Structures are given as structure tokens and as C-alpha cells.
Simulated scan of single mutants.
Amino acid sequence: MNNNQMPPDFKKYDFTMASLLKENTLTRYRTCILQNIENLKKDRLYYSTPINFNDPFDTLLYANYFRILDDVAENLNIGMENYLKCLKEKDKFLASFGIAMWYGNKKDDFLESFFQSIHNAAKELKESLRNNARIICFSEDYLSMLMWSHYADNHKGFAIIYDRDAIANADNFTADNTVIKKKPLLRPVNYVEQQIDLTEELEEYVRAYRMKTLGDVTPPQCHLSVEKLRTTLLEKSQDWSYEREWRVIPRHINLENSSNLSYMKVRPKAVILGAQCERNNQKEIIDICRKRKISVYKTEINYWEPGFKLVVIEPNPNI
């Protein structure tokens, strides 16, 4: 059967028109839960916290704990003697306690406790970006079989098509509906072999902000830049490259505090129903799109050609 002899139930959509879906657009895959349908009505896209993403490495700061602890131990051995001498002039009682700990039989206990606190601080920092950043994810591909399966409830959901420039220029809001003046950043994800190594930067951060002194060794200047944190937000394993992902990320990233980004408002360019979207959900979404003059299409399994492909068709007008 050729394309001119397709069954009437599978009228193939005009791909000269469907190409408009690809032109400078990004796709957001959605399940047909009430919240997602309500957000479609309101033109809202809510930010997510990376700690809830399905990739455990996503936005996870990498640091080598063992190297950090080795450096800390070296600094302690270099500076502790002079530190205790200086402390003796300020607080004899505290100095005598420190001397007893450092030179006595409690040194191992002291070091274990100290190293544990360093370890906990570094671990907390590694997780902080995943807890405090806010991200909205998109894809360049609106016909990805895997994306429809993973993020649109096994093709039972829908996909929203947005103009890329509209996303970049959209208004963003806090949870109390205050407009955020400075726009967040829209950037493509880079797929890499390994994570960026921030061992040195996290050690500096712990030294500078979590532990002001190690003996009398001066805390180093911290070089954990916003640019390096952005890199962490925008790099993923090559295993995820099929997603062809873009992200909206905070312009300013703070490890100690959560981003105040809550949602953005941007009008969709089109909506595509999944190949297995249930009839009642199809009807509700089509009604929303028709009332709001948003183009609506549907994916369908390509029954008339081999190749495991989805095609875009016109939705059933009788739904």
C-alpha cells in the first residue's frame, strides 16, 4: 500500500505544514494528569528540582573525597603546631585542651571527627546544586519514540511545541507570582564522556566558607564560578544524547539557597496528541486548543511503511 492508498482512518498530515513544528521549536512531553492539562490552559511551565530527575548523575557536582581529605590532613600537620601556640596567647584553657587532643592519645579520634565533618560538608555541597537549582527541560525532537515512552506515559500523553525565541523571552515568576526581572538562560545540553572535575573548587569552597581555618594555614580563595556551576547543569552522559535536550536554567546559581524561579508563561505554538492518547483525554485537549486557537495534531504509528516510525496526522474531527 502506498501513501495514496492509506486507510481512511490514518490520513497522513501534510509534512510541508508539519515542518513548521521543527522550525526553531522545542518540545515539552507531558502526561495527561490534571495539573499538566491545567497548565496548558494557563500557558504555564513549572520549574523542576534536579533531585527528582531520573538520572542520578544529573547536576551532581563531582569531587574526589579522598583527595580533599589528604589535602586537609597535610594542612593540619603543617599548621597545627603554630595554631596552638597562637591560641595559647588568647585562650589558655582551649589551647591546653587542643594540645592534649593533638599530642595525646585522642589525636586519632580528633582527626576522624574532623575528617567526618569535612566529608559531610563536601557531600552536602555536592548535593546542594541538585536541591537548589530550578530547571525546565525541552527536546528538539517531537517524534522521538523513547521520549514519548519515557515522558508522555507510553505515548498516552501529549507534547507541547513552543517557539524557541518565545521561551527565551518569556516572563518568569516566583511562587507568589512576582515577575523576575532578569531572564533565565535557555541553553542546549552537552553530552560528554565524564563529569567536570570540581574537586579543587569544592575543597576551596569548604575551606573558605565551611571551615575558616586549618591550623594557621590561610583559607584559599574560592574559584567555584557561576560558569562552572552552569556547566554542571548543562552536561549529561552521552547515554542520554537521544533526548536532544535544551534547558532553561537560573542566570544566578547559589549553592546555599534555592532559586526563586517557580514558573514561566509562554503560549504554545502547537500541541501533539500521543499515538495511544485515550479518547477522553484527546477530546479535552482538542477542546482546549480549539478554544484558544492553538494548532493540534496527533502522532500515529506508521502502518503503511516499515521502519518503526511515528508520523503526524490530523486528529479525528469527530472526537
Score class of each variant (00 low, 15 high):
Glu245Gly: 08
Arg230Lys: 15
Glu204Leu: 06
Leu233Ile: 13
Met211Ala: 05
Arg244Ala: 14
Thr231Tyr: 01
Glu243Met: 06
Gln238Met: 10
Asp216Ile: 08
Leu214Trp: 01
Lys212Trp: 03
Gly215Cys: 08
Arg207Trp: 01
Gln221Gly: 09
Pro220Tyr: 01
Thr218Gln: 14
Tyr209Ser: 10
Ser237Ile: 00
Arg210Val: 04
Arg210Glu: 13
Glu227Gly: 07
Ala208Ile: 00
Thr232Phe: 00
Glu243Ser: 05
Asp239Tyr: 04
Arg210Ala: 08
Leu202His: 00
Glu227Tyr: 01
Tyr242His: 07
Pro219Lys: 02
Trp240Phe: 09
Val248Cys: 12
Lys212Leu: 10
Glu203Tyr: 09
Gln221Thr: 13
Arg207Leu: 14
Arg247Lys: 09
Gly215Thr: 08
Gln238Cys: 04
Ser241Asp: 15
Met211Ser: 07
Tyr205Cys: 14
Glu245Ile: 07
Pro220Phe: 03
Thr231Leu: 02
Ala208Asn: 11
Lys228Arg: 13
Gln238Asp: 05
Gln238Gly: 13
Val226His: 12
Thr218Asn: 11
Glu200Arg: 05
Glu203Leu: 14
Val248Gly: 10
Arg210Asn: 14
Met211Leu: 09
Lys228Gln: 11
Val217Phe: 06
Arg247Pro: 13
Arg210Gln: 10
Thr232Glu: 01
Leu202Met: 03
Thr213Cys: 06
Lys212Ala: 12
Glu204Ala: 13
Asp239Glu: 13
Gln238Trp: 00
Leu234Arg: 08
Val226Cys: 12
Gln238Val: 01
Glu201Phe: 06
Trp240Glu: 15
Met211Glu: 03
Ser237His: 03
Gly215Ile: 03
Tyr205Val: 06
Pro219Asn: 03
Glu204Cys: 12
Glu227Phe: 00
Asp216Lys: 00
Tyr209Arg: 06
Arg244Glu: 15
Met211Cys: 06
Lys212Met: 09
Glu201Asp: 15
Val226Tyr: 04
Glu201Ser: 15
Glu200Cys: 03
Lys236His: 05
Leu229Trp: 02
Gln238Tyr: 04
Glu243His: 01
Arg207His: 05
Arg247Asn: 10
Glu201Leu: 09
Leu234Asn: 08
Gly215Ser: 10
Leu229Val: 07
Glu203Cys: 09
Met211Ile: 07
Leu233His: 00
Arg210Lys: 13
Gln221Met: 10
Leu233Gln: 01
Lys228Glu: 07
Ser237Lys: 03
Glu204His: 07
Glu245Cys: 07
Leu214Gly: 02
Glu204Gly: 07
His223Asn: 15
